[in-house]
Amino acid sequence: MASNDGKSGGGVQRPLSPHLGVYKPQITSTLSILHRMTGVALSVGTLVLVYWLFAITSGPEAFAQMQSCFSSWIGRLLLFGWSFALFYHLCNGIRHLFWDAGKGYELETASKSGIAVVVVSIALTLGVWFCAYTGVGVL
């Protein structure tokens, strides 16, 4: 075996795979990175859930402050984006679970399931906001 000095390549020009930027974005690759981005965004977004619970614990004044914070237009906008990120990550996560089970790897299937994920997550987002505003379907 050749000695390993810890430096990759050891000065030898080895072939490199092309940089990500040369590839044309496809539905599969775009949705893949979107899964990561929504995952990171939702990790920060968990603060919304904890703030909600903390405000409930902290009394009526804190609760009212939390409500006015979330019902401002910027609050609603953030919550709307947050809810879409949640539904997208949820639906695409289920798509990933099917892949883990070895199903849906055909190129055509992968593209179709990707489109389905986007359509369903938009529908779920609009549906939940419709329920939030009207109370329909919420007991």
Binding site: W52, L86, L90, I94, V128, C131, A132, G135, V138, L139
Partner: peptide
């Protein structure tokens, strides 16, 4: 586990709005 738990949490939040 998050699939049913997210659904339940959304339902709880929607109920709290009422």
């Amino acid at each position: 586990a998050n699939i049913p738990l997210v659904a339940a949490a959304i339902w709880i939040v929607l109920l709290s709005l009422r």
